[in-house]
Every structure is written in structure tokens, then in C-alpha cells.
């Protein structure tokens, strides 16, 4: 698998410098009519998505909205019932060679090879992706350093905390310098210090012209990080566009989101009127 680090630092940054014209033309991810059903339950009900390249994209929605299912299908880890998915201009299911070398993935709820140490996991992953050994070692050292894992690089991943697991997973996803990075709930269960570290690395990574697609249900986080947002609920896309477009007139993304998923006007009403009353 060729390494595109050099290619992109030349073309990617130049295109960005040229007002991102070329990247606007080819979206990072294009999804058309995507369906997935588990038994009677429709997890993803025919979604169309177009995620622009070079942006920090947030996929938001309540629990059970179909975010993980969508990301799994987009990254080739789950076979869709119907629909077409293109990543960086290549079809995920008919052209896996082109797609798999261009994406990095941090899934949620799947294990890592936990009986390897952090460094061994990176070495394993980098070499599986065909990078030369010396290069893998160099990049692993830097990633472990930046992600604050250098001290525990020789500990087995099975003994890592949640935050450390997310960070080593992120390092493994970044190791081959992918064009598009898919992160499923990267901040779930992560302590604030680790979260800030992850955030710093991701911001630096998108500045180089790469695309980050991540799912979350923490609106403040999405609002502060993302340029572009897609809102999902009950297996459908409720809205997609720049942060400003999706937010519209609402005071915050949180309010806009509640409005979109139909939970806006719900408050406790009279049913709990005794609560906080005279004792």
C-alpha cells in the first residue's frame, strides 16, 4: 500500500491554498440510498449524504439513530442491504483496494488486539498496511509521544484505560496517514485531558487537508469542533450542511438538534408539579 504522505502535502495543501476548489469538486464521502435492516428493525432507512473533503464533519444523533451502523457500512465493515457508497471517489464495495488504503477507522464497541503492547499494536497495524518497518517505528514513536502514551507503550493494551484505548486506536488509525478518518464516538468515556489531546491531534490533522468524520451525541463538542454537520435520527438524515446552516436561527446546535429530532418542546409539564413544591 503506497504512502501518500508526500503526495498530499504537495497537492493537498496547494489545493487548500487555492481556496479548496479541487476538493470541493470531489466529496470525501458520497452515500446514496443506503439501507440496513436487522430483522424487523430498520437501522438505516435510505440515507443520502455528501460529506465535503478537507473538513471536520460531525455525524450527530441520539442513541440508536443509526450512526454506528452508517459508519460501519461506509468503512466496509458491515454490508448494506442496498445503496451506493463512495469514499474519495471510489466505491467501497467494488473497489476495496483503493478505499481501504485511503481510510483510517476507529470503531466503537470492537476490540483491539489487546494482548499486544501499545507499540506492538502500532507496529502490527502499520506493517499490515504495507508501510516499511523503519517508517512505522518512526511514526509510532511520534504518535505515542504526541498522544501521551510513551510511558505506557510497552504495557499490554488489555491493561489500558478507556481513554488510553481510544488514543492507541486513534494512533493506529492515523499511522498510514489516511485521506479520510472515520471515528465512532472518539470522546466517549474519555477523560478531559485525553479528550484535549485527541482534539489537538485531530485539528492538526484536518489543517493538512484531510477529512475527519466523527459521530457523537455531545452537541457542545460538535459545535466547537466541526465545520460541517449531519444530523441523524431514527435511521434518517434530518439535516446536513455547514454548522451555521444546520443551526439556523436556533441559539445553539443543541436547540436546533432537539428541534430536528422532534424532542424540542418536551418538558415535564404538570406531571411532576409536586417536585420542589412546599414540603
Amino acid at each position: 500500500m503506497p504512502d501518500r504522505a508526500d503526495a498530499r502535502t504537495k497537492t493537498g495543501v496547494e489545493t487548500d491554498a487555492a481556496a479548496g476548489g479541487a476538493r470541493e469538486a470531489r466529496p470525501a464521502v458520497r452515500v446514496q440510498g443506503l439501507w440496513k435492516r436487522f430483522g424487523d428493525q430498520v437501522a438505516v432507512a435510505g440515507i443520502d449524504l455528501e460529506l465535503p473533503a478537507g473538513k471536520f464533519v460531525g455525524l450527530v444523533g441520539p442513541n440508536g439513530a443509526g450512526k454506528t451502523t452508517t459508519l460501519s457500512m461506509v468503512t466496509g465493515l458491515l454490508r448494506p442491504d442496498m445503496g451506493k457508497i463512495e469514499v474519495a471517489g471510489h466505491d467501497v464495495w467494488t473497489d476495496p483496494v483503493e478505499v481501504k488504503s485511503r481510510i483510517g477507522v476507529l470503531p466503537e464497541g470492537l476490540r483491539l488486539f489487546e494482548r499486544l503492547s501499545g507499540r506492538e499494536l502500532l507496529a502490527y497495524n502499520g506493517r499490515l498496511r504495507g508501510l516499511p518497518g523503519d517508517e512505522v517505528d518512526k511514526r509510532a514513536t511520534q504518535l505515542l509521544d504526541v498522544l501521551d502514551l510513551a510511558g505506557s507503550q510497552h504495557k499490554l493494551v488489555v491493561d489500558y484505560s478507556t481513554g488510553m484505548r481510544k488514543k492507541i486506536g486513534l494512533a493506529a488509525a492515523l499511522l498510514h496517514n489516511p485521506e479520510v478518518l472515520f471515528l465512532d464516538e472518539p470522546f466517549e468515556g474519555v477523560d478531559p485531558v485525553s479528550a484535549q489531546t485527541i482534539r489537538g491531534v485531530l485539528e492538526r490533522y484536518t489543517r493538512s487537508g484531510a477529512t475527519v468524520v466523527f459521530s457523537s451525541h455531545v452537541m457542545e463538542l460538535v459545535e466547537s469542533l466541526c465545520d460541517w454537520v449531519a444530523v441523524m435520527a431514527a435511521g434518517r438524515i434530518k439535516a446536513q450542511g455547514t454548522l451555521a446552516e444546520v443551526r439556523g436561527d436556533a441559539p445553539s446546535l443543541q436547540n436546533a438538534f432537539l428541534e430536528l429530532v422532534g424532542a424540542g418542546g418536551r418538558d415535564a409539564g404538570d406531571s411532576l408539579d409536586w417536585l420542589g413544591g412546599s414540603r
Binding site: 468503512t75 465493515l77 483496494v97 481501504k100 476490540r111 483491539l112 488486539f113
Partner: peptide, 13 residues
């Protein structure tokens, strides 16, 4: 185990 995803992502042929 489910760590197979790491293998699956690097098998394209």
C-alpha cells in the same frame, strides 16, 4: 475476536 476488524480493513483482495 472482534479485533478482526483490523485485519478486515487491510484485506482488499
Amino acid at each position: 475476536t472482534s479485533a478482526f476488524w483490523m485485519v478486515a480493513l487491510t484485506i482488499s483482495s
